[in-house]
Design a protein around this nucleic acid. Sequence first.
DNA 1: CCGGCAATCGCATAAAAGTGTGACTTTGTT
DNA 2: AACAAAGTCACACTTTTATGCGATTGCCGG
Lengths: 224, 224
Amino acid sequence: MGDAVKVLLYEDNRDLREGIAFLLQATPGLVLGGAFPHVNNIRTDLHVHEPDVVLLDINMPGMSGLEALPIIKSMYPKTQVVMLTVFDDDERIFQAVRSGASGYLLKNTPPAEIIQAVFDVHKGGSPMTSSVARRVLQFFQQPPKTHPADHLLSAREQDILKGLMKGFSYKLIADDLHISIDTVRTHIRNVYDKLQVNSKTEAILKAMKEGWVDGEAGIAPRDR
Amino acid sequence: MGDAVKVLLYEDNRDLREGIAFLLQATPGLVLGGAFPHVNNIRTDLHVHEPDVVLLDINMPGMSGLEALPIIKSMYPKTQVVMLTVFDDDERIFQAVRSGASGYLLKNTPPAEIIQAVFDVHKGGSPMTSSVARRVLQFFQQPPKTHPADHLLSAREQDILKGLMKGFSYKLIADDLHISIDTVRTHIRNVYDKLQVNSKTEAILKAMKEGWVDGEAGIAPRDR
DNA sequence: CCGGCAATCGCATAAAAGTGTGACTTTGTT
DNA sequence: AACAAAGTCACACTTTTATGCGATTGCCGG
């Protein structure tokens, strides 16, 4: 990783492609493996060039960049992909991010910054147009906590609810809190009443929806 | 919001503070309300200056920037806050983001970019140092690992599970899918088996954790 | 001092969920 | 043709949940 950064560019617009290609080519420290108008031969391209960084447009004839992305990341997980597109809607941004994109630039990004982005991404950064970054941040910003539940449920009732949300049975909750199972029943009865539900499941779903989640707020938890 | 952008700067390091303050001051379109070495009078400062943008260091004597942030956002939700710090650990980044920070720059950011960030954030962007952005992206990037659940559960089993996740009772699910309640039992039995759980709640929690979440689930009343 | 509320516990009963076992049909694969 | 997997349905039986109707004990504010 001390050598030149090998780059592939996918962009269907000819002018833009050639413009960026020229810049990449002319930049010391970068090697342009190829600049293609479509991503249909992505597997071959990857095998031939084994790029460090891929600049990937989303809207291209044939296979889209979003479809190609998972292929790239599954074949060469270490290859860094920067989306380079005109779309800044949540749907596409998140699909790209989830699929492993490391950068997301809008096409109005100045050429110099695109070049910079290639270096950035190659050394472990994630260059993003600031408007895109905003979308991403908003996604797990704790929404203006409108905790209607905050003073709706008493402290003890919240304890019980948390128990439910951990998948505990009445017995386990009773055990955990050192109270009788009948007490647990009573509390749950009251919780259901206040929450306007009538089953464990509904209570849990509502509790989560209502921002009650005692884990990371509003973020889709993932593991492995 | 047609005029100059009012900025407050909090930074305990004198040289840095004065350096940035000078730049902010000298930039057309920006008005520096004040540059403070600590955030202890944050409430007063806000009332006096009503800034559009706050540049906020994290490590300061007295109250930290992370403590001040929620105060700022609760008093003036529309005020944009850019963290300006040396810390790039996950913990601090996420605390800041959750609390409503709109930008996050490391202190090695070139002064010109800091200035640019102020404009960026004011017009709705989220300027971030690319290494910070990477941390954020990684957080909800689905690891290349193929979902084990993907082909673990059959199509029908997934239907049933989705039913559970919507808070449906067996009867409702049966109804919904036009099958008998015993069939639902059978499927659920198999789902529990494959998911290694033994209750509705656990199944739902696991399903959500495992990345299955089909988003908003309408909480439907029960049929009793 | 009283009334209300949170928290505790008990008993009883009906409804729902969980489990064991077995079976028939369709569809697709070997 | 034989087989496996998926989907369908049926009983029967145990556990958990959900709910109705009490009751007792503190504690707080008027």
